[in-house]
């Protein structure tokens, strides 16, 4: 147990190597904004807000991409070392998911504190700037704690689901299975992926979880056309909801939607179990086409 914890700390340290760039991006983002303030560009037009909204969305994609890239990078580079050091791949997989979650939580906390500071400065500078609390990427302690948590959970969960997919593909490719078996597995996995994206919108949600908590009415029901077109419900939400932070969460993974949550969790568990399957020599021998002798 002590060894597992030590490994988790080691992996957590490695997690920060690549996504640390995300923090730098956030600081640049803030600096640019204050720079604009300095040039007396104190008011945003409506179109300015739309631009900011778009920028925040792109920023979020970059952030998710960086965490995912970090997980994939470390799978490719570190796993050979871990295998040699006899560290159980399941420990590696779980540790990596946990470290990604911890990173998301710390990053969101950082964003919350920085956002609070930014908002405080903006309010201090100009009373009329109070409305910047609606600025999509400012998480602040001034009443946005719920959406901030939602954001952190959504990003973390999305990365975990995406990484589970990547992990399974990596396991399949590096296994000793017959090439045809690998292709069949990856094709099946792709089908599961499409299902995972569609299923939340094929089934009516159990309930509007979180609706009252976050004060934003989340639409539920059969909107699969939107899911297929946009892969997430973000586009749909943007059309009907005014709450930008909720939109950003939906861009990643709608964790307020029970079927989506269940399917996502199933994929993570599948990722955890995949190693057991691929590491069984008898499976490889069987699928390879019988005895090799």
């Amino acid at each position: 147990m002590k060894k597992i914890f030590k490994f988790f700390l080691f992996d957590l340290k490695r997690t920060f190597l690549v996504p640390a760039i995300a923090v730098v991006l956030y600081i640049i983002n803030a600096a640019t904004e204050f720079g604009a303030m300095g040039r007396d560009l104190l008011s945003f037009s409506v179109s300015g807000f739309e631009k900011a909204d778009k920028a925040a969305e792109i920023y979020l994609y970059i952030f998710c991409g960086l965490i995912l890239a970090s997980l994939i990078y470390r799978t490719v580079t570190d796993d050979k070392l871990f295998k040699k050091a006899r560290i159980d791949p399941k420990t590696v997989f779980l540790s990596r998911l946990f470290s990604a979650a911890v990173f998301c939580f710390l990053f969101a906390t950082f964003a919350l504190l920085l956002g609070t500071a930014r908002l405080a400065i903006l309010k201090n500078r100009n009373e009329d700037m109070f409305y910047v609390k609606d600025y999509p990427f400012i998480f602040s302690l001034f009443g946005k704690r719920g959406t901030y948590m939602l954001f952190g959970l959504s990003v973390g969960f999305s990365v975990a689901v995406a990484y589970s997919f990547v992990f399974m593909i990596h396991q399949a490719i590096t296994s000793d299975f017959h090439p045809a078996a690998k292709v069949a597995f990856i094709a099946a996995l792709a089908a599961v992926g499409v299902f995972a994206l569609v299923v939340p919108y094929r089934f009516v949600s159990v309930g509007n979880v979180g609706t009252s908590v976050y004060g934003a009415g989340l639409p539920v029901g059969n909107i699969s056309y939107a899911a297929i077109r946009n892969f997430t419900a973000a586009h749909y939400y943007q059309q009907v909801l005014p709450s930008p932070v909720v939109i950003k969460c939906a861009v990643c993974w709608n964790i307020l939607h029970i079927p989506a949550l269940v399917v996502g969790a199933a994929i993570i568990i599948l990722g955890f179990l995949s190693h057991s399957f691929f590491s069984i020599k008898e499976n490889a021998d069987y699928i390879y086409g019988g005895k090799k002798k």
Binding site: K3, K6, F7, L17, R74, T77, L81, K84, I87
Partner: peptide, 30 residues
């Protein structure tokens, strides 16, 4: 295999790892 050390020809080091990091890693887990 935990009692077997192996210096392979193939590299297994993460490219961004320094010697001291590797030594610390092995000292922790071996």
């Amino acid at each position: 295999f935990t009692d077997v050390a192996y210096a392979s020809q193939k590299d297994f080091f993460p490219p961004d790892m320094r010697i001291k990091d590797y030594l610390n890693f092995e000292a922790t887990f071996s």
